[in-house]
């Protein structure tokens, strides 16, 4: 019980920190902007975590879905002048629908083939956006994407208000992730990651479960993309590039794949690292690339996984105690 209280305290402190953060940096649009972008990317990384970290299928098409979300919102709000909220909803739905179609086909392939297949689909989405001038504006991209429409007295003109809006979506995304992972459904996903054959002999319909998990993860990407479009007001084909998905993956691995806090830790860490190394332009990858390699070799469960491993070692001396009637999936148990 003590541990849970402890965990709750940490979460409460973090949430309060996130809530008061804009008050500390009220005049610093740059800091708020970076934070907001970080939150958006984190939403997308939570999505990848669900399919790759918990269900065990490495999808490399997520930048493509991020872009579909971004472009759907961008096109609907600029060309069709649709209400932002309706456009946001449609962006998530359309991305999910695209994910459903891809999932139906791609999930017939396994392991390496799935990764390659999704990588190629992601690249195809990039090419489509880049070449389909009439719809997407091609290399020029889409400009003048509006900020969210006000809801009653709530407006989203300031950096602070956008920050809170994105934060709300992030918290919702994390909340849903936690609920899923710590449910029977989440156990089902983890069983599939563990061994698809075993999961089938346990009566689990792996096809349906993988598909559902894939579609949710794609919906996360779509939501993140749509928010990104509205925040930056401009999008180009680059949002669909393979580098984008490689970045997401890097955040996920370093933070901790298959853990519940890993995506947030990894994303926020890298977002700020990238800012500090900004003067080195693309060369920060000289450090990030090897970090990624070293992480998978030596700390395959990332920062969060490593933390829990150490903690488990320290606690191991204690004898097993009477459990609560239901034992939630502890984070340390969710690593690959």
């Amino acid at each position: 019980m003590g541990k849970i209280l402890n965990q709750r305290t940490v979460i409460a402190v973090l949430v309060i920190f996130a809530l008061v953060f804009p008050l500390i940096y009220a005049d610093n649009r740059y800091v708020l902007h970076v934070m907001t972008i970080g939150f958006i990317f984190a939403i997308s990384v939570y999505g990848m975590n669900l399919i790759a970290g918990f269900t065990g299928q490495l999808s490399l098409a997520h930048a493509g879905f991020f872009a579909i979300g971004a472009y759907t919102l961008g096109i609907l709000t600029t060309r069709n002048e649709m209400n932002f909220w309706l456009a946001l909803l449609l962006a998530v739905l359309l991305t999910s629908a695209a994910g459903l179609v891809l999932g139906l086909i791609a999930l017939r392939t396994k392991e390496h083939f799935f990764a390659i297949y999704t990588l190629i689909v992601g690249y195809l989405i990039y090419l489509l956006i880049d070449k389909w001038d009439g719809l997407t504006g091609g290399v020029r991209g889409l400009i003048g994407i509006p900020i969210p429409d006000p809801i009653g007295p709530l407006t989203f003109e300031s950096a602070t208000s956008m920050y809170y809006l994105v934060l709300a979506f992030l918290l919702l995304s994390i909340f849903i992730s936690v609920r899923i992972v710590r449910s029977l459904t989440g156990r089902t996903y983890i069983a599939i990651r563990n061994s698809e054959e075993l999961a089938q002999t346990l009566g689990i319909n792996t096809r349906i479960n993988k598909l559902v998990s894939f579609v949710i993860s794609v919906a996360y990407a779509g939501l993140a993309g749509a928010l990104y479009a509205s925040l930056t007001r401009f999008i180009g084909p680059d949002v669909a590039s393979t580098n984008m998905v490689f970045n997401f993956l890097m955040y996920l691995i370093v933070g901790g794949i298959g853990t519940l806090s890993g995506p947030l830790v990894g994303t926020m860490l890298f977002i700020w690292l990238e800012q500090f190394l900004r003067s080195y332009q693309e060369y920060h990858l000289l450090i990030f690339g090897p970090i990624l390699v070293l992480m998978v070799i030596f700390f395959p469960t990332g920062i969060v996984g490593g933390f829990y491993k150490i903690k488990a070692k320290l606690q191991h001396k204690k004898l097993p105690k009477e459990s609560k009637y239901f034992n939630p999936v502890p984070e340390k148990s969710t690593e690959k």
């Binding site: 490495l58 490689f246 890097m250 990858l285 990030f288 690339g289 990624l292 390699v293």
Partner: peptide, 9 residues
């Protein structure tokens, strides 16, 4: 993932 790290590097 390691291969992707190598590409980036």
């Amino acid at each position: 993932i390691a291969a992707i790290g190598l590409v980036l590097f």
